[in-house]
Structures are given as structure tokens and as C-alpha cells.
């Protein structure tokens, strides 16, 4: 699978990365050589499983998967002097430009 300018620019948009026009040819060439190199993974048989491997994962401590009681809204209200429509009301410290 070859990688061209459009693929690089698409990945850059997804990754929120600005790419200068002048650096694009070099990036396309370098990413192309990396992608060509990793293509050898395609030699692996298609029927092999791909379960993620994480060493020691079974021993990693996990919290019990049980439903626990959360804070009721009434107790939230008791934490603040002013509470309205699910929000804490706090003093105004400044305003945004235009707002």
C-alpha cells in the first residue's frame, strides 16, 4: 500500500498537526519508507488471533466491579452557599472579552 501527499495530509488533520508545504515531500518519502517496511507484517497468516498482549495483566489489581452509591444531589447542595439547576454558583471574578 503506497502512501502519498493526501494520506499524509489526512493523518496530519486527524492528529491536529500543521505541516508546512515545504516539508511535505520529505515527510511523504519518509513515511512511505516506514510503511513499506512494516508491510512485511502482511506475511503473517490471516487466521492467527490478534488478542492484545500485555505482560502481567491478569495480576494487575482491579477494583471489584460492583455498583456503589454515589453522592446524592442533596449532599452536593449542602456543600455550597448557592446551588441552582445542578450548578454551583460562584462570585464573578472577571469577564471574557466580548462577554
Amino acid at each position: 500500500m503506497s502512501i502519498g501527499e493526501q494520506e499524509v495530509l489526512h493523518a496530519a488533520r486527524l492528529a491536529e498537526l500543521a505541516v508546512e508545504e515545504a516539508e511535505l515531500p520529505r515527510l511523504v518519502a519518509q513515511l512511505g519508507s516506514i510503511v513499506a517496511y512494516v508491510e512485511q507484517l502482511g506475511e503473517l497468516p490471516a487466521d492467527e488471533t490478534a488478542a492484545p498482549h500485555l505482560a502481567g495483566a491478569p495480576a494487575a489489581p482491579l477494583r471489584d466491579d460492583t455498583v456503589r452509591r454515589g453522592l446524592p444531589p442533596a449532599s452536593l447542595e449542602s456543600l455550597t452557599a448557592e446551588f441552582r439547576d445542578g450548578f454551583f454558583l460562584v462570585p464573578v471574578r472577571g469577564t471574557m472579552a466580548g462577554g
Binding site: V8, A11, L17, L31, L41, L44, E48, P52
Partner: peptide, 27 residues
Amino acid sequence: RRILVGTYALSAGYYDAYYLKAQQARA
């Protein structure tokens, strides 16, 4: 470069060819 490679490998249409294959190789 690595962010672009990683984003490309996870993007629609390429995920099976690269990321899943890499997970398979790792196992």
C-alpha cells in the same frame, strides 16, 4: 513522524492491515 505513522495506522481503512497485524505479531 511517529504521531503521523500512529494516526495513519489507526485510521479507517488501515487499522486491520497495520494495527491488528502488529498486535498479532506481538502475541
